[in-house]
């Protein structure tokens, strides 16, 4: 038996041995309102880490959407403007144009990005606003009780597609992120996930690249995070991750869709 095996926990749990700390930009004074296992919390954490690591805390402004993430402003300790449903990219446009030295990001759900805010999202990206658009796609409307989103999969049951989404009735899943690379204003478009430690690490690297693009004024960066809504999907968080990997990744495959920083 060596020294290490006999080490007491108190000897390990010391400040100098800490290798993963809760991000300081994440406000610990409030509990996040998200359901247990919700992907939003992980995305919040990653954004908090990226902002702190880039040293842009004092000139970053977030725009929160309508939807479950409406309260993002309670959790990430930067300035926040809460936008009307779908209008986050328009709000962010002004925030950045009027304060060009600031870093502005939107945090949008699938309703915000691909339904009511399609026009604002497409046009902000087409103008090449120097902002980061974080798009959390969980294929359902969580906050209002699990109704169909434009990104809901064919056959997926929701409160408004109780027998499963049908193409003839509801159209096709809208892969809005696939449209973004076609717009000359975008510099970086990627689709990631946070369901495993490796996926979360990857997403953090992508978010960092996106925020660096905003700092360097390279244009619009879109980071889609394919996510779960285990409450809306009526599954355990664990099962939701499995279901996502099995079904959602087929329609929304992970990976970079555009990266002009590589081409240069």
């Amino acid at each position: 038996m060596n020294l290490c095996d006999t080490m007491e926990l108190e000897e390990i749990i010391r400040e100098e041995n800490k290798v993963y700390a809760v991000p300081e930009l994440l406000d610990q004074s409030v509990h996040m309102h998200y359901c247990p296992g919700c992907s939003h919390g992980v995305v919040h954490k990653l954004i908090s880490e990226v902002i702190a690591e880039l040293g842009i805390t004092d000139h970053t402004v977030g725009v929160s959407p309508v939807g479950c993430a409406v309260f993002a402003y309670n959790y990430i300790d930067v300035d926040w403007v809460e936008a009307a449903h779908g209008r986050a990219p328009a709000v962010a446009t002004a925030l950045n144009r009027l304060w060009p030295e600031n870093v502005v990001f939107t945090y949008q759900g699938d309703g915000d990005m691909s339904a009511i805010g399609t026009a604002e999202s497409i046009h902000a990206a087409n103008r090449g606003e120097n902002i980061v658009m974080v798009f959390v796609n969980n294929a359902i409307y969580g906050m209002t009780g699990g109704q169909m989103a434009p990104t809901t999969l064919i056959g997926q049951k929701t409160a408004t597609t109780p027998y499963g989404r049908r193409v003839d009735l509801n159209g096709h899943p809208l892969e809005i992120t696939n449209l973004m690379p076609l717009l000359d204003g975008t510099c970086y478009v990627t689709r990631q996930s946070v369901h495993t430690p490796a996926a979360a690490r990857k997403t953090k690297a992508c978010l960092k690249k996106a925020f660096e693009n905003a700092i360097a004024k390279r244009g619009t960066s879109v980071v889609e995070v394919v996510a779960t809504c285990n409450s809306g999907w009526k599954m355990s968080p664990e099962k939701a991750n499995e279901w996502m990997a099995e079904h959602m990744f087929k329609v929304y495959p992970l990976g970079d869709l555009k990266d002009t920083t590589k081409e240069q």
């Binding site: 809760v22 991000p23 509990h31 992980v42 919040h44 690490r201």
Partner: peptide, 8 residues
């Protein structure tokens, strides 16, 4: 990394 509530 996967903890959504930053508890760990």
């Amino acid at each position: 990394w996967v903890c959504p509530d930053a508890c760990i």
